[in-house]
Measured scan of single mutants.
Amino acid sequence: ENVVSAPMPGKVLRVLVRVGDRVRVGQGLLVLEAMKMENEIPSPRDGVVKRILVKEGEIVDTGQPLIELG
């Protein structure tokens, strides 16, 4: 699984990683606000951040690609 998608609609509050960062399974990639709750979106696997597909403040839909892992 190379693309991390939004599990719910919401607003991207914070991106916690940068392109080139090594991440571990379960590590927070970004914080999504949904229904006034902050939800940290975890990495599904170990890898390297290849691309960040959203910006802070952006509104996303369920299933929208957020981050690509390499």
Rank of each mutant, 00 (worst) to 15 (best):
E1G: 01
E1S: 01
E1A: 00
E1Q: 05
N2T: 06
N2C: 00
N2R: 03
V3Q: 14
V3Y: 10
V3C: 01
V3H: 08
V3F: 10
V3R: 08
V3A: 03
V3N: 06
V3K: 12
V3L: 13
V4G: 03
V4W: 10
V4T: 12
S5A: 04
S5D: 04
S5N: 09
S5P: 14
A6D: 03
A6W: 07
A6Y: 10
A6H: 13
P7Y: 04
P7K: 07
P7T: 06
M8S: 03
M8W: 13
P9T: 06
P9N: 14
P9A: 06
P9L: 14
P9S: 14
P9I: 09
G10K: 01
G10F: 12
G10M: 01
G10E: 03
G10C: 01
G10W: 09
K11V: 04
K11H: 10
V12M: 14
V12A: 03
V12T: 11
V12H: 02
V12W: 00
L13F: 09
L13V: 14
L13E: 07
L13A: 04
L13P: 08
R14M: 08
R14F: 05
V15R: 09
V15A: 13
V15M: 10
V15S: 10
V15N: 13
L16D: 15
L16Q: 06
L16N: 14
V17S: 15
V17D: 15
V17M: 12
V17W: 02
R18S: 14
R18T: 10
R18Q: 04
R18M: 09
V19S: 05
V19L: 15
V19N: 07
V19P: 09
G20Y: 03
G20R: 09
G20S: 07
G20L: 13
D21G: 05
D21C: 01
D21V: 02
R22S: 14
R22M: 15
V23H: 07
V23K: 07
V23P: 15
V23I: 09
R24K: 05
R24N: 09
R24P: 13
V25N: 10
G26W: 09
G26N: 15
Q27G: 04
Q27W: 05
Q27V: 09
Q27M: 02
Q27D: 11
Q27S: 09
G28V: 11
G28P: 04
G28S: 12
G28I: 08
L29V: 12
L29M: 06
L29D: 00
L29P: 00
L30Y: 08
L30T: 12
L30I: 09
V31D: 12
V31L: 12
V31H: 12
V31M: 03
L32T: 08
L32F: 09
L32C: 00
E33F: 10
E33W: 14
E33C: 00
E33S: 07
A34G: 11
A34L: 03
A34F: 11
A34K: 07
M35A: 03
M35E: 06
M35H: 10
M35R: 10
M35I: 03
M35N: 07
K36R: 11
K36S: 12
K36E: 12
K36A: 03
M37E: 06
M37R: 09
M37G: 04
M37P: 10
M37T: 11
E38K: 08
E38D: 11
E38R: 09
N39T: 09
N39V: 12
N39H: 11
E40T: 06
E40H: 11
I41D: 00
I41P: 15
P42M: 04
P42E: 15
P42R: 14
S43R: 00
S43L: 08
S43A: 11
P44G: 14
R45A: 12
R45P: 01
D46T: 03
D46M: 03
G47V: 06
V48P: 10
V48R: 04
V48L: 08
V48Y: 06
V48K: 07
V48G: 13
V49E: 00
V49M: 02
V49Y: 02
V49G: 05
V49A: 09
R51C: 01
R51N: 07
R51V: 12
R51G: 15
I52K: 05
I52M: 07
I52E: 15
L53S: 03
L53E: 15
V54W: 11
V54P: 10
K55C: 01
K55A: 13
K55D: 05
K55F: 13
E56H: 09
E56Y: 13
E56W: 04
E56R: 04
E56V: 04
E56F: 12
G57Q: 07
G57A: 05
G57S: 08
G57E: 05
G57T: 15
G57Y: 13
E58R: 08
E58L: 07
E58N: 13
E58T: 09
I59K: 07
V60N: 03
V60F: 06
V60S: 03
V60W: 06
D61V: 11
D61Y: 08
T62I: 10
T62S: 10
T62N: 12
T62M: 05
G63I: 08
G63Q: 11
G63P: 11
Q64N: 12
Q64E: 13
Q64A: 14
P65K: 06
P65A: 05
P65Q: 10
P65T: 07
P65E: 10
L66Y: 04
L66I: 15
L66R: 00
L66V: 12
L66T: 05
I67N: 05
I67L: 01
I67K: 00
E68Q: 02
E68A: 03
E68M: 02
E68N: 05
L69G: 11
L69S: 13
L69N: 15
L69W: 08
L69R: 04
L69Y: 11
L69Q: 12
L69E: 06
G70E: 13
G70F: 09
G70P: 15
G70R: 05
G70N: 02
G70S: 14
